[in-house]
Design a binder for these strands. Sequence first.
DNA 1: CAAGATTGATTACTCAATCTTC
DNA 2: GAAGATTGAGTAATCAATCTTG
Lengths: 151, 151
Amino acid sequence: MAAKRTKDIEAWSVFLWTHSVLLKKLEGEMKDELGIPLTWFDVLAQLETAPDGRLRMSQLADSLVLSASGLTRRLDQMEKAALIRRDLCADDRRGFYAILTKIGRDLVARAWTVHIKGIKKHFNRHLTKNEIAVLEKAFARVIDAELRSTD
Amino acid sequence: MAAKRTKDIEAWSVFLWTHSVLLKKLEGEMKDELGIPLTWFDVLAQLETAPDGRLRMSQLADSLVLSASGLTRRLDQMEKAALIRRDLCADDRRGFYAILTKIGRDLVARAWTVHIKGIKKHFNRHLTKNEIAVLEKAFARVIDAELRSTD
DNA sequence: CAAGATTGATTACTCAATCTTC
DNA sequence: GAAGATTGAGTAATCAATCTTG
């Protein structure tokens, strides 16, 4: 029955629409204001907040929810753009650290400003303090439960 | 300041994680149980719920938030799989209707079952009635506001 | 032989250009 | 000339296979 279906998935449906609409806006603003894709900001932000400002390729891929090969290619481009570099891993010669360059560090500071402004404008601004608190708590619970279960 | 940053984007951050984790699960289940990508289900569901069970290509692309060329290619595959067909538009010979075949109608009924089961299991189940209501109302407001503003 | 990273092949999308009809 | 749909070119992801080191 269509009515039953709609009711069951209404929350999920608006969730998907919100994701689609807002991501397009945030991507557009990052591109317009700093000339980089949002995916590059994700890399920069992860590296900036990591201990010692560096991460192994595999750790970085995990935290970005990206495949190893996907990360290799993304970092190839960012290395050409001089935003990151790869450092040999001293104690494990199979591996590399991804690490911000000076240019990357300067850029990520400006990118944070753009990104936070966008989130406030397109997301937080429309929500009450209570709604934000409810969402945060609820989604944290969903993630926690789903990451633990394999099915 | 990192602490400030984190606070401002905490809700958005868990929102993104939830999207990423749950979409992978729902895609996997649709593929495992019925052998089709979730994107095909999106098409089938739109057509099933449309008046007369058919939609113009351009309308369908809009409702799926997909480019015209992206839809052309997706429907090429679904037509080969005999799930949909293209009907000439009687009153406008530039256009086509996308319409479900018998096979498509049978499949979408089963796909709804799989999809709703997945949403209940991975999303609704972890949330209270109140959280779902808050989420639904809040996100509807975000979408409404953001779709109307061009900036 | 397992783990970390890269490369090759394939896939699904986008934008720009094209073709047909309004 | 503009709109509806398709085709071509380019981009960014995935999985499977490979290479190197533990």
